[in-house]
Design a protein around this nucleic acid. Structure first.
Length: 547
RNA sequence: GCGGUCGUCGUCCAGCCUGGCAGGACGUCAGCUUCCCAAGCUGAAGAUCGCGGGUUCAAGUCCCGCCGACCGCACCA
């Protein structure tokens, strides 16, 4: 058995995830997350927000999974998210129509009509690779799940293939909430759905999957991005490097200055993503960024990098995609809906000097009422009202905006998009190991940070009731407690190691005497003796509770 | 959808070639034991062998069909 097999098997046995609907034989492309899988996902989300969202004051939102036809028509998905499938009328074999034509030397442009493709196939007597038949029918295979909203068939809807569209259509409200400030980052964590023809590789390609998406709206003329680090390298298999197959190691700053990464924020996000994967336990040498070239990119993207992780059994595996979506989406929705979706920037182009009188000071003069009626005047040696020179405290000189330039524009979007299911698998894969013949998921301590086991050393009444007290204390502090009083202590520790639970708290005879317990560490197997009331603090320090 | 491999307790597997009571290990549960790392003893539950049909006195085993999974092809914007 390979390491991946071990991990998948354990993931199922220990309650992380497994293929759905197994009692009915299973349906590929669907996975169910169990108790520990749900905990782990939650912690990965928290970690991600701590790196990508909270430090920048980005905002989170939650929109429907089901989108009405016009949204996806406008976004280009209805037209682009489908493939023309040619079916052999003789044997029923199915192929991509455009690929069949290309293989027999007929070039067709993208987006050709099915009837046109069908005619081409039949006129050119293209042979079925399987049975040699020469009669074809061409239909479109839509990669989205389609349904009806309400009782009318013409009121079509689709399960969202990405969460992003839910953000774009709400741009105006979000921009307003954000007090019209750019850059504005908007995050959505939720599910996406793609009706894959034939999903494979278990969790890696699902028909229903969890994703974490960030849409960063920027002013393309002035990105306003953080300073790019120059002390850490990214492994970039960029467009030019792909010819050699060897990634080039560049710092984010170098990659941006060389023009390899087009946008500053994009470079910064790649850097954050590397850090994020590090914090999930993936070392640098198992990561790379793979640039998609023109034909491979999504219809909305001007530059795309995939963040890939090397898994021995699967090769380089995509866990995140970074797309420079330009103004494609907002522009499309603006045209289709007729609603304006602009950002506004005001910039002073010229200023004038003016004088503000400090009234409180001026009132110390007897004739202040007369003076206040007159306009102050700036002369070379000071400020005068009438012929009276004011002292320094009585006025201030300010620069006033004389003329401002108002620029209305459609913001550009830079999008990091993460596959949460794959990240969960990756975290387990890199955490998996063996120690003295046992399986251990040595997850980074920030993961499953809220899960703790409480164990009476032996199954006796006084230990069990004390253990219940400890459990109650921890539950009230927000921990998720696994209670286990069955069998020999060593066996329970081993079980917990295999589940990846970071700490086990054991109640022994000393606990009854002095109120201390032992806390056993999953990775080192070492034990600390801690007072019961200090447990929450101890555990949170050990698991980096504060990000 | 094509080609290949496979489908047997919760998990991993044996049994299939050569038809004759559905087995093992791990896990789970109960009891005993047990004051720190899968220890020991005793016992128990758990599979209509993916589904349907056929051949046969008899099918997990042979034959046919279907379903599903995995791997490869294609697809994955």
């Amino acid at each position: 058995m390979s390491k991946l097999d071990d991990v998948l098997n354990l993931a199922k046995v220990k309650g992380y995830f497994w293929p759905s609907f197994e009692i009915y034989g299973g349906v590929s492309g669907f996975y169910t997350f169990g108790p520990l899988g749900a905990y782990l996902q939650r912690d990965i989300e928290e970690l991600w927000k701590g790196i990508f969202v909270k430090p920048f004051g980005f905002i989170e939102m939650d929109s429907p999974d089901l989108l009405p036809y016009p949204v996806l028509k406008a976004s280009g998905h209805v037209d682009n998210f489908k493939d023309p499938m040619a079916e052999c009328r003789k044997c029923g074999a199915k192929y991509r129509a455009d690929h069949l034509l290309k293989d027999s030397g007929v070039e067709v442009s993208e987006g050709a009509e099915p009837s046109y493709l069908e005619a081409l196939l039949n006129q050119n007597k293209v042979k079925c690779p399987k049975c040699g038949g020469q009669e074809w029918s061409v239909k479109l295979y839509l990669n989205m799940f389609e349904t009806n909203i309400g009782p009318y068939a013409e009121n079509k809807g689709y399960l969202r293939p990405e969460t992003a569209q839910g953000i774009f259509v709400e741009f105006n409200s979000l921009y307003n909430y954000n007090r019209e400030q750019l850059p504005m980052g908007v995050v959505q964590i939720g599910k996406g759905y793609r009706n894959e023809i034939s999903p494979r590789q278990g969790l890696i390609r699902l028909r229903e999957f969890h994703m974490m998406e960030l849409e960063l709206f920027i002013d393309p003329q002035e990105e306003d991005a953080p300073e790019l680090p120059n002390d850490q390298k990214l492994r970039l298999l960029h467009e030019k490097a792909r010819a050699t197959g060897e990634p080039e190691e560049l710092t984010p700053l170098e990659a941006y200055q060389n023009g390899i990464i087009k946008m500053k924020w994009l470079a910064y996000f790649l850097y954050l993503s590397k850090k994020f994967l590090n914090s999930l336990g993936v070392p640098d040498e198992k990561q790379r960024f793979f640039e998609k070239i023109a034909g491979e990119r999504a219809h909305y993207s001007a530059q795309t990098f995939d963040h890939e992780v090397y898994i021995d059994e699967l090769g380089w595996t995509e866990v995140a995609g970074f797309a420079y979506r330009t103004d494609f989406d907002l522009k499309s929705h603006m045209q289709a809906s007729g609603k304006e979706m602009y950002a506004i920037k005001r910039k002073a182009v010229s200023t004038k000097t003016s004088v503000v009188i400090n009234r409180e000071e001026l009132m110390k003069r007897d004739n202040w009422k007369e003076l206040a009626e007159l306009k102050p005047e700036v002369r070379s040696d000071g400020v005068y009202i009438g012929n009276i020179k004011l002292n320094d405290k009585e006025y201030r000189i300010i620069q006033e905006v004389e003329k401002e330039e108002i620029r209305k524009f459609i913001p550009h979007v830079i999008e990091p998009s993460f596959g949460l299911d794959r990240l969960t698998l990756v975290a387990l894969y890199f955490a998996y190991g063996k120690k003295e013949g046992r399986n251990i998921f040595s997850l980074p301590k920030g993961l499953l940070k809220n899960v703790v086991a409480v164990l009476p050393l032996v199954s006796k009444e006084e230990f069990i009731s004390k253990a219940f007290e400890v459990r109650e204390l921890l539950v009230n502090e927000g921990f998720d407690v696994i209670f286990d009083d069955k069998g020999y202590i060593g066996k329970r520790y081993a079980r917990l190691d295999e589940s990846g639970v970071p700490f086990a708290i054991t109640i022994d005879s000393k606990t009854l005497e002095d109120g201390t317990v032992t806390v056993r560490d999953r990775d080192s197997w070492s034990q600390d003796r801690i007072k019961i009331q200090d447990l929450p603090k101890y555990l949170r320090e050990k698991t980096n509770w504060r990000l």
